[in-house]
Design a protein around this nucleic acid. Structure first.
Length: 854
RNA sequence: GGGCAAGUGGUGGAAUGGCAUACACGCAGGACUUAAAAUCCUGUGGCCGCAAGGCUGUGAGGGUUCGAUUCCCUCCUUGCCCACCA
């Protein structure tokens, strides 16, 4: 039979049908069997799969099939992250319903995935937009609400004017919306948050457990959580002349540099700081300050954080007292201080902080040097061209003078946390430290997660607001929907226009509800959940996807979880992976799971490039997997992707290398077809040199292939081991009349097909059948190797003189050192290189190398 | 500005202290063919040499070592992440 595109198409279709009909990859929990949960990040169903998907899922499929052959009970599911804005945008554009569009895309995507021959247990397929999935989103939300971990709060939030919705901090990239790149603005809104900060400490701490995660993902999460040790210092506000006697306000500032406290020459509040309202009324410049605050608020986030922007600010007219020396310093409002970090207020030390330095120069504010550079010890204020941010010894700092600033950080923080302000009087706000100058604190960069979205195509937040009795009684009127009323279903067939806010606000059918408390009239919350909520626990749902009684089956989850190998793009290093870790910790606290981390091992696959650039629709340099499959078949595509680069590295698309993969499979095919002959088991006692060499090549290929699969999934070098075996088989001259030779040839060919089975499953199934086997190759045991068969009789010894290669010797493998030396020194060429000089020593690495030092 | 990763033939890549360039792609030459495709064989880092062979070579410079692509230091370049984070 020839090897043509049509044959390949027929073979691939045949085996895809076989796997589907025989449910080859259907699994169930079996405590007698070791489990392996292999999971790829499920796709957003946009219809067509792209090369990034193909690479991601091919890597996962090879791992799943390899583990299956190694005897594991492998869970390998697939689903769709199906809620989200693209469905709404498509619905607006095509005047259809987001649900219709999404399910059509899912159908299309499923077909494409099947064409790749992936080993999914299709009976577990799920889509997050199914009511029987998002019902459990709502259930989890209510549990969080009950524990105080889901709450509603008004504050300045990130708002994307184009998507007309709020965004989480994690979704703002360089001040712009992650989805549409529109500049994000700040807006004051009442929104739902999840209290991920409740787990800050353990999210950080447990990163240490994730030893099989890429180092850089752990670092990115560590930076994102951002634990910083520092000090909160209390600056008492001086009463304004007329208001003398009124209760004084205190400004807590956060700093990581308490060693510079004696150099503070002004205090700065963020424009949104709540204290501003209390400080400015009645001041002559009140109006101007309000204008400035308004201007700052309207500025887009990207403009505000851009590095080269001049720092703008205004003097409030008020002063604050530095607790360490009682000095009155001016209070400013400036846009370079961010409300969302620290306390939203800073002490400015212009001599030792570049941002403060620039602002001080601009506003002619004084500088004071409190750290002397040991390399230029007579630093003067008027010499400063920029802030001195280096290490040094303290000056102008009273009893701390002369101390190195690293020790001073700790000493001063300690001193402030036990002593009242030197200027006297009460300064610490209630609960922050009873009348002390400051306190040692820890600050986190991680913010609570804003999950409200003013969009239609998402999980409705299961909350109702009573508008009758509860509200009239004036107490709580916000209630979670009771469990038996879940799911709160999304209404169908709404008009999606993309304008005028969420379509849910206009659906009478949706809005009106009954108050779960008093039974009176109520209206529903019409915000939906961010889709990252959906994907934060889907891996648990895959353990029991059809369970309609509970969020997931505890027993099933206990067997399958945690995920042994998770595979996906680096772009989810923070968002999805952090949220999933948070959910797992919450579910552990609920007693539903008994592990703290959902993903034991993580592999982040590299991007697919073409012409040196990331393949993307907007660049127009995509290669359609469908077209490649039509021409070469799925196996060739899979092999190319695995062979072209290690999975973590970028992969450069190359058409001619694609043909190389085709050629290789063609050779494998021809070898089986032309050289495999049924033969009986033969006596190994009659092996000649060539047979032994072939056997050694076979065992060596199994060893190298298996080790490369196990140590970091180095598929490219595993494949090269298989290629070497094929080369050895092709070189091997089997005497057609010798049963012994045919037997060993058959063994080598069978091994080759088994090794390739996880990578190119269709063709290997077909070849396996051609070789007379009845069983699907997917369930055959992985081949083993024998160390003894790898032994060689002779060893090639490299001889170096002073580290330079000067000769090679074939010697018996078991030779003694003395004999080895004798043989080498007897060589005329070696003697010529030694040239009569005295040999200082011999470095001998057995079976490898001898270095003669002269 | 801070952090991390990576720099090896014409190309993808291999070697993690012991023969640099495994395995492929590409290219060149040859066989088969009326011819082409396919397939097979040979060669393929650079320089010198008819050859045997020699010298040189893993971004640049230095160090450790009998021996460095591999470990350490400095620098350059590229990529990624974070960033008025106090």
């Amino acid at each position: 039979m020839p090897y043509t595109t049509n044959d390949i198409k027929r073979i691939e279709a045949k085996w895809q049908k076989y796997w589907a009909e025989h449910k080859t990859f259907k699994v169930s929990a079996d405590p007698q069997q070791p489990k392996y949960y292999c999971l790829e990040m499920f796709p957003y169903p946009s219809g067509k799969i792209h090369m990034g998907h193909v690479r991601n899922y091919t890597i996962a499929d090879v791992i799943a099939r390899f583990k299956m052959m190694q005897g594991f009970n492998v869970l390998h599911p697939m689903g769709y992250d199906a809620f989200g804005q693209p469905a709404e945008n498509a619905a607006i554009k095509n005047k259809t319903d987001p649900a219709q569009w999404t399910y059509r895309c899912i159908d299309q995507m499923r077909e494409e995935l099947k064409k790749m021959g992936f080993s999914y247990d299709w009976d577990r397929e799920l889509a997050t937009c199914d009511a029987d999935y998002y019902k459990w989103n709502q259930w989890i939300f209510i549990k969080m609400f009950e524990k105080g971990l889901a709450y509603k709060r008004a504050s300045a939030v990130n708002w994307c004017p184009s998507c007309e919705t709020t965004l989480a901090n994690e979704e703002v990239i360089n001040g712009a919306c992650w989805r549409c790149q529109t500049d994000v603005v700040q807006k004051q809104l009442e929104q739902w948050y999840l209290k991920i900060t409740h787990y800050s400490e353990t999210l950080l701490e447990d990163l240490n457990k994730l030893t099989d995660w890429p180092e850089r993902v752990r670092l990115m999460q560590e930076n994102w959580i951002g634990k910083s040790y520092g000090c909160e210092i209390y600056f008492k506000v001086e009463p304004a002349g007329r208001q003398a006697g009124t209760e004084s306000e205190t400004i807590p500032v956060f700093t990581t540099r308490p060693d510079t406290i004696f150099g503070a020459t002004y205090v700065v509040l963020a424009p949104e700081h709540p204290l501003v309202e209390k400080l400015i009324p009645g001041l002559s410049q009140e109006k101007k300050i309000r204008e400035f605050i308004k201007k700052a608020a309207n500025e887009s986030k990207s403009a505000r954080i851009s590095g080269d922007k001049a720092k703008e600010g205004m003097f409030t007219g008020r002063y604050a007292l530095n607790p360490v020396n009682g000095e009155a310093i001016p209070i400013y409002i400036a846009d370079y201080v961010l409300m969302e970090y620290g306390t939203g207020a800073i002490m400015a030390v212009p001599a030792h902080d570049q941002r403060d330095f620039l602002f001080a120069k601009e506003h002619k504010l004084p500088l004071r040097i409190v750290i002397q550079n040991p390399e230029a010890p007579s630093l003067k204020v008027h010499d400063l061209k920029q802030a001195f941010e280096g290490e040094g010894n303290l000056v102008n700092s009273k009893q701390f003078d002369g101390m190195d600033n690293e020790s001073a950080k700790e000493k001063i923080a300690q001193w402030m946390s036990v002593n009242p302000p030197v200027a006297g009087g009460e300064t610490s706000p209630a609960g922050r430290g009873a009348n002390k100058m400051g306190k040692v604190t820890v600050h986190w960069r991680l913010r609570d997660w804003l999950i409200s979205r003013q969009r239609y195509w998402g999980t409705p937040i299961p909350i109702v607001y009573c508008i009758e009795k509860c509200r009239r009684d004036g107490k709580n009127f916000m209630w979670p929907v009771s469990e038996e009323d879940l799911p709160v279903k999304l209404p169908k067939n709404l008009q999606i226009t993309g304008q005028g806010g969420s379509p849910l606000t206009k659906s009478a059918e949706f809005i009106h509800a009954k108050c779960p408390k008093c039974g009176g009239a109520a209206i529903r919350e019409f915000d939906t959940m961010a889709t990252f909520f959906d994907s934060s626990w889907y891996f648990l749902r895959f353990c029991s996807p059809r369970d309609d009684k509970q969020v997931f089956d505890k027993k099933e989850a206990a067997y399958w979880m945690p995920v042994d190998q998770y595979i996906g793009g680096i772009e989810h290093a923070i968002l999805h992976l952090l949220y999933s870790r948070f959910f797992t910790k919450f579910l552990k606290d609920l007693g539903l799971v008994n592990f703290a981390e959902p993903f034991t091992r993580l592999l982040t696959q590299g991007m697919v490039l073409k012409d040196g650039e990331v393949m993307s629709k907007s660049r127009g340099n995509t290669v359609d997997p469908d077209e490649v499959i039509a021409k070469f078949g799925a196996d060739t595509l899979r092999l190319f992707i695995l062979f072209a680069a290690p999975p973590e590295d970028q992969l450069e698309w190359n058409d001619s290398a694609m043909e190389g993969s085709w050629k290789f499979l063609n050779r494998v095919w021809n070898t089986v077809e032309n050289r495999y002959q049924p033969a009986e088991r033969a006596d190994s006692a009659v092996l000649d040199r060539a047979d032994k060499d072939l056997e050694r090549e076979r065992h060596s290929a199994v060893k190298k292939f298996t080790e490369n699969m196990q140590k970091g999934f180095k598929f490219n070098t595993a494949i090269s081991a298989a290629m070497i075996l094929l080369n050895a088989v092709d070189q091997y001259k089997a005497d057609g009349h010798s049963k012994v030779k045919q037997y060993y040839l058959n063994e080598a060919i069978k091994t080759l097909v088994l090794l390739l089975a996880p990578m190119t499953p269709h063709i290997c199934e077909e070849l396996w059948q051609m070789m007379g086997q009845k069983e699907s190759i997917a369930r055959v045991s992985w081949p083993s190797y024998n160390e003894a068969a790898l032994e060689q009789d002779t060893a090639a010894i490299v001889v170096q003189i002073n580290g330079k290669v000067r000769g090679k010797f074939d010697v018996p493998a078991a030779i003694s050192e003395a004999e080895l030396k004798k043989i080498i020194l007897a060589d005329a060429k070696i003697q010529q290189y030694i040239g009569g000089k005295a040999v200082q020593k011999y470095i001998i690495i057995p079976k490898k190398l001898v270095n003669i030092v002269i």
